[in-house]
Design a binder for these strands. Structure first.
Lengths: 214, 214
DNA sequence: GACTCCTGTTACCGCAAGTAACATGTGAGT
DNA sequence: ACTCACATGTTACTTGCGGTAACAGGAGTC
């Protein structure tokens, strides 16, 4: 009948879509974010217009791709955030989860956060910068919500929690990005350093000899 | 002689270069970061190849453009960082300086940090994402140096300071970006909230009723 | 068998980055 | 005065991308 047929078709379309996304994933992870639609189509064994029929435009495809990875990352973060432990331990676990993720799959990370710098040669094409912001925004919003739910911040807590959510995510992101590039220390050390920062060690530290401190 | 001639020529070339950069600035601020080389050349009253002779490629031009603005911003930040005041006040002044800058010239900010999302219509073109990272990196490095010079952090201070430098810059950036988009509060409130975060208020806050806190 | 979708193709448009090859003005050296 | 070197400027082109139109089967439905 009509319904079953529609269902069948939708099923088929969804499967196809997933296959295409997986092919796109392979190409993007291999060639960097500058991968062309032609290359992706070729990897999937088809041609361009099909991609456009499924995803509208390149932005749609990349958004779908980004969503997959983002969802996975957010789930891992939520787990670390919800673990039964002291606050400090949770913070460290969350930081460590994030850093472990970007360490384990730097290609994915670079795709999500640092559009196009992959390929050895020119990457005229497309700006995916629009998709890195949403990732960080989502993480910031989620963290803000968790903070507001869990921590007693007195009046104005909602706003404060949101600011902190975005701020902490930004801190994690920037520090992680720098760390991933230079690897100046172990992951555990980085986690501890960041947690110390959040724990007010900057305020507690004394001035250095020779003048007023920062 | 040779030297004076070379100097004259170089002077002329430098002036030309500055003019071109100013024209590029106007176009980028008007049309968004997706501005084409043709458009920039037209604004400057010349044609494309000249731009390429001066800046190599579009990346070179945009890097030069970014450097201008970045230098200006860094100088303002250094001033706030070096002001004679208590540490907390300096931190707040620095945060406020950064936020005031991005608030005053959001177009410039978006150009530096958020490549291509300016124009109302399609922006196939070019990825400037490569230039936002350097900006943040430079800020992070500088802040790290200042912290290491001024704050007594005990053993491992250099590494810790660098981590904190990048982390704090990332926090400032992410929170500022979110704030600029949503304007959920005044600048002063944002500054206070972030400074409170750095001052360990997250660690000091109590759990909310109903379970262990974040 | 005609009709309708869905999938797939080839061939094309428009536009941007980047490049060659050619034109021209100007000061230096002889 | 002539020419050489050189910087500045041009037009016209190539290449490669995103995106689209128009066409070509194939599988169910009436």
């Amino acid at each position: 009948m009509d319904t079953t047929q529609r269902t069948d078709q939708q099923r088929s379309a969804d499967r196809r879509r997933r296959e295409l996304l997986e092919a796109a994933d392979r190409v993007v992870l291999r060639d960097g974010p500058g991968a062309s639609m032609n290359a992706i189509a070729a990897e999937a064994g088809i041609t361009k217009p099909i991609l456009y029929r499924h995803f509208g435009d390149k932005g749609g495809l990349y958004a779908a791709l980004a969503k997959r990875h983002t969802d996975a990352l957010l789930e891992a973060l939520r787990a670390a955030l919800d673990a039964p432990a002291e606050r400090r331990e949770r913070v460290e676990a969350t930081l460590d989860t994030y850093l472990a993720a970007i360490e384990a799959r730097p290609q994915v990370y670079r795709f999500l956060m640092h559009p196009s710098e992959g390929g050895p040669q020119g990457d005229q094409g497309f700006d995916i910068g629009l998709y890195s912001a949403p990732v960080l925004r989502r993480m910031g919003e989620e963290l803000g919500k968790v903070i507001e739910e869990r921590v007693d911040l007195g009046p104005g807590s909602q706003q404060l929690a949101r600011v902190w959510g975005h701020g902490i995510v930004g801190m994690m992101h920037a520090a992680g990005d720098w760390w991933l590039g230079e690897r100046p220390c172990s992951r555990a050390e980085l986690v501890r350093s960041l947690a110390d920062l959040l724990w007010g060690r900057l305020a507690a530290a004394g001035d250095r000899v020779g003048g007023p401190g920062f």
